[in-house]
Design a protein around this nucleic acid. Structure first.
Lengths: 162, 162
DNA sequence: GCTTGACTTCAAGTGCGCTTGAGATCTTAC
DNA sequence: GTAAGATCTCAAGCGCACTTGAAGTCAAGC
């Protein structure tokens, strides 16, 4: 059952699950992926240090942002799992996460701006619109330059490849 | 305003694939899901109207944003598949997409602000940080436990930062 | 000590978003 | 007419992020 809290108490997987809203099975899965860690009781049951709550919560955030778990692993970087992370550890982690967020936001803003242009001209034209010419979607080309200028050039019939 | 020289010109699946960067198998899959549509030749091969290029490109955009295909279906709303969408059709669609983008951007901005607060105080504290606190209060956690022992942590501990 | 519920591992299954392969057919170029 | 290449369907497979189930173990209350 549940136990009152004491300073350096460890959490069972059930407590972790209840407090993070993440299923026990998912917690075990995260552990398999080395996103979190636990210690074991003499009877082989998992016990989590409290700072794992933060990690799990950040994993949830990442999921809300559509970030794959492999990236989450990287994003945690040097935040230690075997000891309580220091203030500085979390600060670095925060900054890393913030950069991730910024990147995503900027990419969305770019798309928004481009889409605004498309609404303006009503075109949604394929070749003129950077929105519709994503750099990463075309497997053949690496991360290449893309055109961001002239929204109006003409319509889809155009001579791009014809 | 958009007048292809040959209004009836249709694209093969290969052309669609090359021009959108989306695999043929994915195009067939999208068709199964009713995200796009084709007509068939007498020999049962798919032929795509040009405006399907836009739809496919928008699907790619959606994917970059982590939007599930079921939502994409909704996002297309009333943009017709069986005839060339009108200017107004695309305008409505554009606005719908823009709203989606705005929503995502705002949600990211919210997270960013919260994370900035966390960086400010250096806490990333569960109780203080809304980012990490979607669920319960967790008010009992202070800074956390002192330390924890032996955990298998096969991640390179490169950090050292301390 | 016993019971009950929380926990364990491992294997298999799920849903999404595709890809791959087999084997057949269509289209086009010569 | 023929050959090459593009496309067809259908079934199975894959990677991710888990969930579910079976069968067994642990921990706590009485």
């Amino acid at each position: 059952m549940n136990v009152p809290h004491e300073p350096d108490e460890l959490l069972t997987i059930g407590e972790m699950s209840r407090r993070t809203g993440v299923a026990q099975s998912a917690l075990r899965y995260y552990e398999d992926l080395d996103l979190i860690a636990s210690v074991r009781t003499s009877g082989n049951q998992r016990r989590y240090a409290r700072h794992m709550l933060r990690r799990v919560s950040l994993i949830s955030v990442a999921k809300r942002l559509g970030m794959p778990l492999s990236d989450v692993h990287d994003a945690f970087g040097d935040v230690p799992m075997d000891s309580t992370p220091s203030h500085a550890d979390w600060q670095r982690a925060s900054r890393r996460w913030k950069l991730q967020l910024e990147e995503r936001r900027r990419s969305i803003e770019r798309l928004e701006n481009e889409l605004t242009g498309c609404i303006g001209c009503g075109c949604l034209s394929l070749k003129a619109c950077a929105l519709l010419n994503p750099d990463d979607a075309l497997a053949s080309t690496g991360v290449g330059p893309r055109r961001l200028d002239g929204i109006h050039d003409d319509e889809d019939s155009a001579g791009d490849e014809r």
